[in-house]
């Protein structure tokens, strides 16, 4: 059975269409990734799934039941990790988790055990008596997650749970997502970070301007662009670079710049290396190195949307 089914869902804010006729199904046991640039409509979609926003059109079903009609059932089976931290500063870590889990009707010893378990799960058992204002960003994020999983929901929605945290906490979180999944949870995971999505998600939807423009396993997504290759050119300085001019060179599909690398995605059928190098030299750009890469999701994203995943 599908844990989540979205059918022709549209969400408008006044005239602005944030989610545009979106359809999608997530099966039990999946880690499903939402990939999209800022403002693509990821959080809006997630808020509709969680019952925080009403959709203008379409149907969302959770565990086979229409979530608008059976909102209590839907919410009981759902754990939400919101993009903005939602924890109480004046309650200890333990109390935070206990409070949220209690809202699902849990009480007494059962509640206590589940809270302790959730705190252990995110590695905060030693800090259960501390207040969040003494926590690092990563620890707060982990507490945010613990609050959403203590009641053992079937479906866990995580909206950018790793944004702005140290690598250690990030690895911890990614590992716990995998563990939760192994324990039988279905997970929807939103991120800006391609590597994360590539590492943990079994299926990915690329969202742009409120629409799903591609969906599938990462291999399926990569195969969408096998007729292109990536060229990374290391330069001394990219200051004088005219991206538009490079894009006009025949065969070039997409261009982006990351520090000292010019990343060019180009059609495998066209031999344009000479032209690219010539262009750089003519513009006085010093080339320090050159390498060809197999396509990754970042390239897929760039090719499909023409946008970088993160604002630079």
């Amino acid at each position: 059975m599908n844990v989540l089914e979205i059918k022709n869902v549209t969400k408008k804010f006044a005239d602005f269409i944030a989610v545009d006729n979106m359809s999608l199904a997530v099966a039990e046991g999946e880690i499903f990734g939402f990939l999209g640039a800022n403002g693509a409509g990821k959080s809006t979609t997630i808020n509709m799934i969680a019952g925080l926003l009403r959709c203008n059109d379409g149907i969302i079903s959770i565990l086979g039941k229409n979530s608008a009609k059976h909102s209590r059932f839907a919410k009981m089976n759902l754990g939400m990790v919101p993009q903005d931290l939602a924890i109480y500063e004046d309650m200890t870590a333990y109390e935070n988790v206990k409070f949220f889990a209690g809202l699902y009707g849990l009480r007494g010893a059962e509640l206590h055990d589940l809270v302790v378990e959730a705190l252990e799960f995110v590695g905060l058992q030693d800090k259960h008596k501390s207040y969040p204002n003494s926590f690092s960003g990563g620890m707060k994020r982990r507490l945010n997650i613990a609050c959403a999983i203590a009641h053992r929901p079937k479906l866990i929605i995580m909206d950018e749970p790793t944004v702005g945290i140290d690598p250690q906490s990030r690895n911890y979180i990614l590992n716990s997502v995998k563990k939760l999944n192994e324990m039988g949870c279905t997970i929807i995971y939103t991120s800006h970070y391609m590597e994360e999505v590539e590492e943990i998600c079994s299926r990915i939807a690329i969202i742009d301007h409120g629409k799903i423009i591609a969906e599938g396993t990462k291999e399926q997504l990569k195969s969408l662009i096998t007729n292109t290759k990536d060229l990374w050119i290391e330069v001394k300085s990219s200051e004088n670079l005219n991206i538009q001019a490079i894009k006009e060179i025949p065969g070039v599909e997409a261009v982006s710049i990351e520090e000292y690398f010019i990343k060019i995605n180009s059609d495998t059928g066209v031999n344009n290396l000479n032209k690219i190098i010539e262009h750089l030299i003519n513009n006085g750009i010093e080339i320090r190195g050159l390498q060809e890469k197999a396509p990754n999701l970042e390239t897929v994203f760039l090719t499909l949307t023409g946008r970088n995943l993160r604002d630079q």
């Binding site: 925080l52 109480y88 809202l103 699902y104």
Partner: peptide
């Protein structure tokens, strides 16, 4: 503090 919206995603 956004906890209000978090609460609304629970059965409350």
């Amino acid at each position: 503090k956004r906890t209000y919206f978090r609460l609304l995603s629970t059965p409350i």
